[in-house]
């Protein structure tokens, strides 16, 4: 847009580095992907960043493939959808779902995926084949989040393990996301909050050597 206002913005752009992360969170309806989005969103909000978060509601939620486009930035965000080839990160709680949104991933973007499949369709492919395909990607992190979550107490924490493993690729500090998790789970009590934080930090450790 060619207005005085926009001109000023163009100058500002050069002044400081853009701090943004465009994230696609993927999984199957009911796997807690909106909790992941809420924790990151809360952390970004506490950091006074701009946020847009697009969700799936309605029919597709019933055991179908679901995704959330989450965009955080220190600038105003326009589109609620991440453009193709612009996502910095795909966080997937299910391995096959991590590959569904590859057309959105940026050239230097990262894919962080859980290994435990949700086999609710007849023609679910061989899990090994899926893992192999993920490993072919240049930037990937694969975690057995369900196993770690079970050690912590229940597979329901697997979403936080995956978030932990992905956290290094988000333009937010570790303690910011921890604080976001605390805020989101506060109403569920200190015990559940502690388990979620534990799961998050277990995931964080897993990607320690990567970045």
């Amino acid at each position: 847009m060619y207005t005085g206002h926009e001109e000023k913005k163009k100058v500002d752009k050069n002044k400081y580095l853009l701090m943004k992360t465009d994230i696609i969170i993927a999984g199957v309806g009911g796997q807690g992907i909106l909790s992941i989005a809420a924790c990151i969103g809360m952390a970004a909000l506490e950091n006074s960043m701009h946020i847009k978060q697009s969700e799936v509601h309605g029919m597709s939620q019933r055991g179908g493939a679901v995704q959330s486009h989450l965009r955080i930035s220190d600038r105003e965000i326009f589109s609620d959808l991440i453009p193709l080839g612009k996502a910095d990160l795909i966080i997937s709680v299910e391995p096959m779902e991590s590959l569904r949104y590859l057309p959105w991933i940026a050239k230097d973007g990262w894919v962080v995926s859980n290994t435990t499949p949700v086999k609710n369709i007849k023609d679910y492919p061989d899990t090994e084949e899926i893992i192999k395909s993920i490993k072919l990607l240049e930037n990937h992190v694969i975690v057995d989040a369900d196993k770690i979550a079970r050690e912590i107490g229940s597979p329901i924490y697997s979403n936080m393990v995956v978030l932990g493993a992905a956290a290094r690729f988000i333009n937010l500090k570790h303690e910011n996301i921890e604080s976001g998790i605390r805020a989101i789970f506060a109403r569920k009590g200190s015990e559940i909050t502690a388990r979620n934080l534990e799961a998050f930090n277990a995931g964080w450790q897993l990607s320690a050597n990567i970045k």
């Binding site: 199957v28 055991g63 179908g64 493939a65 193709l84 080839g85 996502a87 096959m96 779902e97 590959l99 569904r100 949104y101 590859l102 057309p103 959105w104 991933i105 940026a106 050239k107 973007g109 609710n120 369709i121 023609d123 679910y124 492919p125 061989d126 084949e129 899926i130 395909s133 990607l137």
Partner: peptide, 12 residues
């Protein structure tokens, strides 16, 4: 756009 999903990805 990024890579096309491999054929191993089925509809859900």
């Amino acid at each position: 756009q990024g890579p096309v999903p491999p054929p191993v990805v089925k509809n859900r």
